[in-house]
């Protein structure tokens, strides 16, 4: 091990760590606001990357149809719920219409633009839009009616959602993997390290997103509402913050972050329909390091996971995953010794 090898490994670790950081942040965000341990976070990554890959071939991705089906399902649930509560057909139809509108527009535009060979950036925007639209629908269909259940129940639902999304991914994208074209064909030789454009994009996009998230939570009303929900759900509700709306907004953000991560790693590796799980799991490890509650903690944890992974695969590639996932044990031990007993639920 000399300096050049160490620096290449560091760069590799930080690049991967930046993506894990995004997923870790999303996991923390979802958990604090809705108490859902969102295992399918990684699926959004695969969906994002693969939707773009299918758009590249000039076909309409299967996720568009799935989006329409999910929207119809969510709209029907909304309509029934409003009708049961108010017995008013017009109002229940309005509620359904509101849920349907955005996904239908996104699906329509994507289906319309897909066969025209639009520039890469337009396709990327479409892929992000499609996957982001999934977020609120997933929350509506799978979690909203269970919003008051215990975290354990929500975790079990998450496992179910994960399997459903992986299976649907296989159906829509096929078993073989895809690799997306690079957004920026740059190669900079800096001594032993060769910086690629994609590496720079990954690091800068992650940093920008983290700053944006910080601004969102500190400066905007919606962000403050989400924070209020995270601190005290009941209190927030008494102050007029709708918890279903908070949940849907959170899931939209999680899906957006997932899709963006998918676009970021798509050009650097081969993404399969089930690749998202392991990537999301490493984001989850990062979130656990942060005690599922601290954003800066998740960032540090993610960088740590990325770097340990890079050095682990250099020294003992056969045991890489073992090394990465064993990190969680001392952290949990330390947390349970120092964190004290808190029966209070987040």
């Amino acid at each position: 091990m000399d300096f050049s090898i160490a620096s290449i490994l560091m760069l590799d670790g930080v690049t991967n760590g930046a993506v894990y950081a995004l997923l870790g942040l999303a996991t923390v965000l979802v958990f604090t606001v809705t108490r859902v341990i969102f295992i399918p976070q990684g699926e959004f990554v695969a969906y994002g990357a693969l939707t773009l890959a299918i758009l590249q071939t000039g076909k309409v991705p299967g996720t568009v149809w799935l989006l329409l089906i999910m929207a119809a399902l969510a709209a029907a649930m909304d309509a029934v719920e409003v009708w049961l509560r108010q017995r008013d057909t017009l109002r229940s139809l309005t509620a359904a219409g509101k849920t349907l509108a955005l996904p239908v527009v996104v699906a329509g535009v994507t289906a319309w633009l897909a066969p025209m060979q639009t520039p890469l950036l337009v396709q990327a925007a479409l892929a992000v839009a499609v996957v982001t639209a999934f977020g609120p629908l997933v929350y509506r269909v799978a979690y909203q009616s269970l919003a008051d259940a215990s975290p354990l129940v929500l975790l079990i639902v998450s496992v179910g959602v994960h399997f459903a999304m992986t299976g649907l991914g296989l159906l829509f994208f096929g078993a073989e993997g895809f690799r997306n074209p690079a957004f920026w064909d740059l190669r900079l030789g800096l001594g032993p390290i060769s910086l690629t454009g994609q590496t720079l994009i990954i690091v800068f996009a992650s940093a920008a997103l983290i700053v944006l998230l910080w601004l969102f939570f500190e400066r905007s009303l919606y962000g403050k509402a989400l924070r209020a929900t995270a601190v005290n759900r009941l209190g927030a509700r008494l102050m007029g913050i709708s918890s279903p709306a908070a949940g849907q907004l959170t899931f939209a953000m999680a899906a957006f972050i997932g899709a963006l991560s998918g676009l970021l790693i798509g050009p650097t590796t081969t993404v399969f329909y089930d690749s998202g799980f392991l990537i999301g799991l490493k984001g989850f490890v990062a979130a656990v390091v942060a005690g599922l509650s601290s954003y800066p903690g998740a960032l540090v944890g993610a960088m740590f996971v990325g770097v340990v992974e890079a050095f682990g695969s250099f020294y003992a590639s056969a045991f890489k995953e073992v090394i990465v996932f064993t990190i969680i044990l001392p952290v949990l031990l330390w947390r349970s010794l120092h964190g004290g007993h808190s029966d209070e639920e987040h």
Partner: peptide, 20 residues
């Protein structure tokens, strides 16, 4: 001899060691 898994996002480290 180095190893990797299909779902790995990067094999840079293994490639580095092998090429070295």
């Amino acid at each position: 001899a180095e190893r990797f898994a299909r779902s790995d996002t990067s094999v840079t480290a293994q490639a580095l060691k092998l090429v070295a």
